[in-house]
């Protein structure tokens, strides 16, 4: 057998590797969410064991089993639903008024130069006051009834919407405004077809902040002379060192937070369908 003519130095041989198709692992696969649940479950178990062993006293925090029993009892008696409903009413009322004021003010300042001159600086001054610092003043003015509670939520929720919507209106791409002008749009059409849709994403950012604040404000306002609401439930539980009820209130807050976030997401998905992240290819 004659060897083929050597065309190159064997020392030059290129080192190669083979890339093989990856093979899917066989056997039952554990779904991702089960794996995700694993560590919280372990933590809960450790917590329960520590409570039962007396390592964590109930005054510090109740055992998970105790919390779930109380949760069941509060739910079954309708007590939790009652407090939740009262809190929701306060939050929704305060939020609606706050958002409405914020939107109207932002439209006035955003769409007209004169409006900005007149209205923006008072809004900016009010914005810097922490709404909770107004509690004593509001109590003096409006007493300790529902009005004060809702008014404080209004104070807290107006400004996030105002600031974001105002910025959204002012940050519209001037080239799009110019395009609108060359297309012969009237001022009203320009606002309706160009400015407002363009500012909508910013409005939603503000709305998210406002929602979070309305919920946060409840914690404080429901400590003022009240017998109902999640905030009352929590402060009442504090007086009796009922850590189980306090934890339940915290859980309610976080579940509602998630729920509201979900609602906003759905709204955005519908209203901002044109955004690249939502567009289906």
């Amino acid at each position: 057998m004659t060897s083929p003519p050597v065309l190159h130095n064997p020392a030059d041989t290129v080192r190669t590797i083979e890339i093989t198709p990856s093979v899917a692992r066989n056997g039952p696969r554990v779904p991702g969410f089960v794996l995700r649940l694993l560590s919280p479950v372990v933590i809960l178990l450790l917590w329960e064991i520590a409570s039962r062993a007396g390592l964590i006293p109930t005054q510090i925090i109740a055992a998970p089993s105790e919390i779930s029993i109380t949760l069941w009892a509060l739910t079954a008696s309708g007590e939790l639903a009652h407090h939740l409903l009262v809190s929701l009413q306060r939050a929704v009322l305060g939020l609606s008024i706050g958002v409405a004021i914020g939107v109207v003010a932002a439209l006035i300042t955003g769409l007209s130069k004169r409006g900005e001159v007149v209205l923006d600086s008072p809004m900016q001054m009010l914005r810097t006051i922490p709404s909770l610092a107004l509690v004593p003043l509001f109590i003096l003015w409006f007493g300790i009834g529902e009005f004060t509670k809702v008014a404080l939520i209004v104070m807290g929720t107006t400004f996030p919407v105002y600031l974001n919507l105002f910025a959204g209106i002012r940050n519209i791409d001037p080239k799009l405004i110019e395009a609108g002008n060359t297309l012969g749009l009237s001022r009203r059409e320009l606002i309706w077809h160009v400015v407002l849709p363009g500012a909508l994403p910013s409005f939603f950012v503000g709305l998210r902040y406002s929602l979070a604040i309305s919920w946060l404000a409840l914690v404080f306002v429901e400590q003022i002379n009240t017998m109902s609401g999640i905030g009352f439930l929590a402060s009442d539980a504090r007086d009796f060192m009922r850590t189980d009820i306090i934890v339940i209130c915290l859980l309610v807050y976080s579940v509602l937070g998630l729920l509201i976030d979900g609602i906003i997401r759905t709204l955005e998905h519908y209203a901002l369908a044109w955004r690249p992240s939502f567009v289906k290819s």
């Binding site: 799009l176 395009a179 609108g180 060359t182 077809h193 849709p197 363009g198 044109w274």
Partner: peptide, 23 residues
């Protein structure tokens, strides 16, 4: 008269045909 610029300047929130007939 109408103008076309270097960038298309379409309204991102309007579908193509709505952009075309805007105004």
């Amino acid at each position: 008269r109408s103008a076309v610029f270097q960038e298309p300047r379409l309204m991102p929130w309007k579908r193509v045909w709505k952009n075309v007939t805007l105004g």
